[in-house]
């Protein structure tokens, strides 16, 4: 695909996106409008993340893509191949080796470092959207810091269900100012958002918004004093690597509905097995 520029987008467009990213980093949690381009993958499939990645990637970067925590899910494969073709950058499945990681719906289990950028794909960047459909109105609410309605939603959850019934895309308050949608990551991942040494960038292509968490930003999951936020996961250990601290996928394994739990972060699970950890149903690496 030599007829396309490095990382697909032309330099003018990348500069425009970089300006938006810098502004987003300067105002943590604020949604910066940007002129999202039409990408060769559909809206809703990571166009925002792809554009942010394209603007960040340098020829010497090592790129990793995950979807649902896994490197081998179809959309992750598709995006990784896109950048292999258009940017020719090195790719990896190892979190620790990647300099830019694009993700959909997860934060890697392996702690990120200062020299890494995590790029999130965001479908609906507006945390207030389902409380207030009008964009004109929600921008005003952010500007005036009118977030009472957000807590009304959480209040309603508790009065109806006895608990806050938001399991993913759990809203957070950034640096004491903006309420932000962390993208549809499970709330298990929310604690990893704050005080993170890596740069975290969020790209919403269809909705034309970029926002960011600079390194070491304070991020608080919204809650009530008497109903505090709780990061939750399945009460089990990974059947393959035995990890008790990682987010688990539930897999149905037979016709009777028998199920097992395995790490959603495939790289984390692989690395643990390589280091000799074995779960209840796992076999040491190299045997399977």
């Amino acid at each position: 695909m030599s007829e396309y520029n490095f990382a697909y987008l032309d330099e003018q467009t990348k500069r425009m996106i970089r300006r938006a990213i810098l502004k987003a980093l300067a105002i943590p949690g604020y949604q910066v409008p940007f002129a999202s381009r039409e990408m060769p993958m559909p809206y809703g499939w990571g166009t925002g993340g792809v554009q942010v990645s394209a603007a960040c990637l340098m020829p010497e970067d090592t790129f990793k893509v995950i979807d649902q925590g896994a490197d081998d899910t179809t959309n992750a494969v598709s995006i990784r191949k896109f950048f292999e073709k258009t940017a020719g950058v090195a790719t990896t499945e190892e979190t620790a080796r990647a300099s830019v990681i694009q993700t959909r719906h997860r934060i890697p289990e392996t702690p990120l470092g200062e020299d890494q950028i995590l790029v999130y794909q965001v479908p609906i960047p507006e945390p207030l959207r389902f409380l207030e459909p009008s964009e004109v109105e929600t921008r005003k609410m952010h500007a005036l810091e009118e977030y009472g309605l957000m807590h009304v939603k959480l209040y309603e959850d508790i009065s109806r269900h006895g608990a806050i019934a938001t399991a993913y895309a759990y809203p957070v308050k950034v640096a004491g100012r903006y309420v932000m949608d962390p993208s549809p990551i499970p709330k298990f991942d929310n604690p990893k958002l704050g005080d993170c040494p890596a740069i975290q960038l969020f790209g919403a292509g269809r909705e034309q918004r970029i926002y960011a968490l600079p390194p070491w930003t304070a991020v608080v999951s919204l809650d009530f004093e008497d109903h505090p936020f709780e990061a939750s996961k399945a009460a089990a250990d990974c059947a393959l690597c035995g990890a008790g601290d990682s987010y688990l996928d539930e897999v149905i394994v037979d016709d009777e509905g028998g199920r097992m739990f395995v790490c959603s972060d495939t790289d984390y699970c692989r690395a643990r097995r390589a280091a000799g950890h074995v779960g209840a149903q796992g076999a040491p690496e190299g045997v399977a």
């Binding site: 009118e146 009472g148 807590h151 209040y155 309603e156 508790i158 004093e225 008497d226």
Partner: peptide, 19 residues
């Protein structure tokens, strides 16, 4: 929104955070 939520909104808008 429930009656309780309606009454509680103004409290939450000014910072009440104890359900």
């Amino acid at each position: 929104v429930s009656a309780g939520g309606n009454v509680g909104e103004r409290l939450m808008a000014v910072g009440a955070r104890h359900y």
